[in-house]
Nucleic acid binder design. Structure first.
Lengths: 340, 340
DNA sequence: CCGGAGTACAAAACCGGTTCACCGCAGTAC
DNA sequence: GTACTGCGGTGAACCGGTTTTGTACTCCGG
């Protein structure tokens, strides 16, 4: 049962290859009856265009690429990526474009992947996630002329298109929320400082704290692991004047903090408030449930993929703001009660 | 800066296309000096073979496909998939094969994806995950003659190759562990019954319980969400003679159980022991830390991808046992202490 | 000195599509 | 009646590789 080609269709219909191609692509050049006959035969034979042949002929790969550069361990516990991918898919669904995924282990390999994909004409464009400060990927894709959309930004993206989420506004909402509950000493346990979104949030954090006249605002950097989250929480709480509220860059570190607080006999939320970044089923499920900053990650990915498709199609570059963050207050935040 | 083709190389070297192809592929047909010259020029020009042209010519797509068919929400909170993908990647790393990923929302769409990938010659083979009872994918890929490796099994895989993990032995280890701590009434909160691995674990669970003469063994099915995990835990614990140990099919439901137990004033592990399936950073991080069943998921994916590559290369079908499960006892399991 | 084998390459066919150039024919304008 | 136009198609070139076939030349034995 060989896979049929347009030659098979042409033979069956008694026309030339070219006519079949016109008919199948809905272009002028064949009469209506002929077109119908060809389409019928194609359907009957179960024909689908060879992606390789089409790619070779029209110079389109029919695929976009995404490289995710985080350790496998971390990836597993970050709901963000899978939801992002689901969103990308929904933008691609039904269309002729597929998603090429690469999970990398270091930034150099990631760059090499982009170069290889470009050289092999495997992708028509790429999505860049986890933007770093002075990210070499920016210059690489620009140099190659490879269409790209940064998921993140809008700073430090060079001239590239991007879809960004307003971390600044979200962070201000969080700090407002905590300050409104009476907190004055707030600490942030962030991801690696090399990520642009980490810096953006830290800047927003300091800005909001300054605006509100909060004195004890401090930032500590971790690697998103529970271990480091626990360690930093312990250190912060052991200080002479410990913070009364902590803002974490992911849910896992917040979970670790919950455990540390329990070990140290610090009641949450009465003696310590906790906020997680990016809401997740886990945040909802924990006791106390975690106050979290939610955004529509699926939509985020969908918008990025859509923009990339337009870009590949020759559309103009753009810098889109994705749907806004939303603060979801839950049991892990509350007024500070010194006496427990 | 056009991407160089072998014609460019041929012109620069003053030889024919054919000679360049021979040289680049290390086949006889060109002299050593000529080969060296060609390779040098190719390197200098930064040449890489067009995947489309190669695919068209040798009938290989240079890619394998994976369809994951779970709701985006669930996917995000299951560390399994990302780690599996990381493993697949490490088998593909350095080679000429890429990974095509599809996140689907229903089984019908998944089947359609396989058919389309086959018809478009987009992939050389596929990986099947989350095997279902009487899974239509099995017959589909068999009918198409599309090389496939089932990640799961070894039952219900038809004639397909598979890489499986010994859920039976793992479950027996868990039940032994709990029985050794004195537990007699054990319940299992499982994933959907349509998954083969769910059934396998349930069968093993009942088998182990029977072997040990445990009377109160029961299984309840959920959808992996915290909500259902919480609901079923509440129901189970509200029974006249509630189980003293619960085994969950993922970590999120176990987290929910922890919360419910806390709400009901049931101490873990003194009055209730909890076991999670597939260890995760979350299990380590929680207080109490969750006793869990660990397996090397990255290796699992790597083995599956390797087997598929061999299959695509004409290798014989195989049914491989992946690296074994390991029970990791932590604070969530212990002897039953009626008096707290 | 000739036939046969082997070497090192050239030339062309092929994979399965798209697209361009051309062509016969009917209808129409003049 | 002729020239022009548009329609509906054919045939071939082309995309960038691989593979097959063909060929010029060298080396060797007899």
């Amino acid at each position: 049962m060989r896979r049929p080609t347009i030659v098979d269709i042409a033979r069956a219909a008694g026309v030339s290859k070219g006519a079949v191609s016109y008919a199948l692509n809905g272009r002028p050049g064949v009469s209506e009856p002929t077109r119908r006959r060809i389409l019928e035969i194609a359907a009957e034979l179960g024909w689908a265009p060879s992606s390789a042949a089409r790619a070779l002929s029209d110079g389109r790969a029919g695929a976009i690429g995404l490289v995710v550069d985080r350790p496998a361990q971390v990836l597993g516990s970050e709901p963000f990526f899978m939801r992002l991918i689901a969103g990308i898919q929904s933008a691609l669904a039904g269309g002729p474009t597929a998603l090429l995924l690469q999970v990398s282990d270091d930034a150099t390999a990631e760059i090499a992947t982009y170069r290889r994909w470009y050289a092999e004409r495997r992708v028509d464009g790429v999505l860049l996630v986890d933007l770093r400060v002075a990210d070499p990927r920016i210059t690489t894709v620009a140099e190659l002329g490879l269409p790209a959309v940064v998921i993140g930004g809008p700073d430090d993206t060079g001239a590239l298109s991007c879809v960004w989420s307003d971390d600044d506004a979200a962070m201000r909402a969080v700090v407002d929320h905590l300050a409104g509950l009476g907190h004055r000493r707030i600490a942030r346990v962030a991801g690696p400082a090399e990520f642009v979104h980490t810096r953006a949030r830290s800047a927003a954090f300091h800005g909001a704290a300054a605006d509100l006249g909060l004195d004890g605002a401090q930032v500590a950097h971790a690697d998103y692991s529970g271990e480091e989250g626990a360690r930093l929480t312990r250190e912060l709480l052991a200080a002479p004047e410990p913070p009364t509220a902590l803002i974490f860059d992911n849910d896992l570190m917040a979970v670790a903090a919950l455990g540390v607080a329990q070990d140290m006999g610090v009641q949450v939320p009465d003696r310590l408030s906790i906020v997680a970044w990016d809401d997740s089923p886990l945040c909802r499920t924990l006791r106390p449930a975690l106050t979290a900053v939610r955004r529509d990650v699926v939509d985020y990915g969908e918008q990025a993929a859509r923009l990339l498709l337009r870009l590949v199609d020759g559309g103009p570059p753009a810098r889109l703001a994705a749907s806004a963050f939303e603060l979801v207050p839950r049991g892990s935040t509350g007024p500070f009660h010194p006496a427990g």
